[in-house]
């Protein structure tokens, strides 16, 4: 039982940044914006949190737990918000191509993260190129003190930092909001048919801006989680890897439903670490790590064949809205 609990625990830890990214992307896509800049925004969120945390950690002798959490958190949200606003301004206000803008934003975000990450590394004069925010990261990593006493149950449910729970809460809240609230209904209307929504008096531009910015900020938290919780406060350039793309794959796999994204993220997280638990030969690693993407392709094929309306992406996804074209 312990073995399974430990595997699932690691799968959840691996899946959490994916869940933040997927939830953020689903919220964004529901407004009709295909934001392929999410991987970049996650990088920007991560490095923004690191910058905030770095200057706080280095400016005080003893760290205040509240500020240790709030400064990186707010820095991350601000960084992700600004990155999202770039995307919004280009695609919504200037009607630029969403795919190109998103891909450019990802390239920009990764470069932005590595540039400022590299700058911080230079300041630390570390022999090995990394930034260690271990003093503040331990507050992100703190779990319930009674987790260890509960055996496998504690390992599975109570051994995480608060961002892991926040990721689940945000996914559930997003599900409820999208399905059962007026805001969600109007947002979906904007994503399905912005012209009709506009005719019904819904502020299309406002909703697109709002959803893309909120989605970007949620995704940015995935980057922050990876550095401050999973990596124990260690920033290394390119350490976040290609998790942003996995998050976008999960959006398709979960058929644009945040609640399904919880399961999908943990599944992808589990597949990512599976090779350690089945002692797969190293030569099989690439095949095992290919599984999430193969599953995503299969999900795409199946949903395309079945053509169930509720499993389709928003109808106007990826299209700019020109009011004059109505």
């Amino acid at each position: 039982m312990n073995f399974i609990a430990q595997f699932l625990q690691r799968a959840i830890l691996q899946g959490t940044p994916l869940l933040f990214g997927a939830t953020g992307e689903i919220i964004t896509e529901k407004s009709g914006n295909l934001n392929l800049g999410i991987p970049g925004i996650m990088y920007v969120g991560a490095i923004s949190g690191v910058i905030g945390g770095f200057f706080y950690q280095n400016s005080v002798k003893s760290v205040n737990p509240f500020l240790a959490i709030m400064i990186p958190l707010l820095s991350c949200l601000l960084g992700a918000l600004l990155a999202s606003l770039i995307y919004c301004f280009l695609t919504i206000t200037l009607h630029a191509n969403q795919n190109v803008t998103g891909l450019a934003l990802t390239t920009f975000g990764v470069g932005f993260g590595n540039f400022f990450g590299g700058s911080l590394i230079k300041i630390t004069k570390s022999e090995v190129p990394y930034v260690a925010l271990t003093k503040i990261a331990k507050y992100y990593h703190s779990s319930f003190p009674f987790a260890k006493k509960l055996g496998w149950f504690g390992t599975l449910f109570f051994s995480y930092g608060f961002l892991v729970y926040l990721a689940v809460i945000l996914a559930i809240v997003a599900t409820v909001l999208l399905k059962r609230s007026r805001i969600g209904l109007q947002l979906r209307a904007v994503g399905e048919n912005p012209a009709t929504a506009d005719a019904a008096g819904i502020n299309v531009t406002g909703y697109k801006y709002f959803a893309t910015c909120i989605g970007g900020m949620v995704a940015g938290l995935g980057g922050l989680y990876f550095i401050m919780d999973y990596s124990g406060g260690i920033w290394s350039n390119n350490g976040f890897g290609d998790r942003g793309w996995l998050a976008i794959a999960i959006v398709i796999f979960a058929m644009w439903r945040p609640n399904l994204a919880i399961f999908a993220s943990y599944l992808f997280g589990g597949l990512y670490i599976l090779f350690n638990y089945i002692n797969a030969k190293m030569q099989l690693l690439p095949i095992i790590q290919m599984i999430p993407y193969v599953v995503t392709i299969l999900a795409l094929i199946l949903t395309s064949i079945r053509k169930k309306r509720e499993n389709q992406p928003p109808a106007s996804l990826g299209l700019s809205y020109f009011r004059e074209e109505r």
Partner: peptide, 25 residues
């Protein structure tokens, strides 16, 4: 609805801060 969500998020953050504050001694 929005207020309720904000309250929930803030409650989670406060709980987290309280937990870690105890660990800082």
């Amino acid at each position: 609805m929005f207020k309720r969500i904000m309250a929930l998020v803030l409650a989670v953050l406060m709980c987290a801060t309280m937990t870690v504050a105890l660990a800082s001694c």
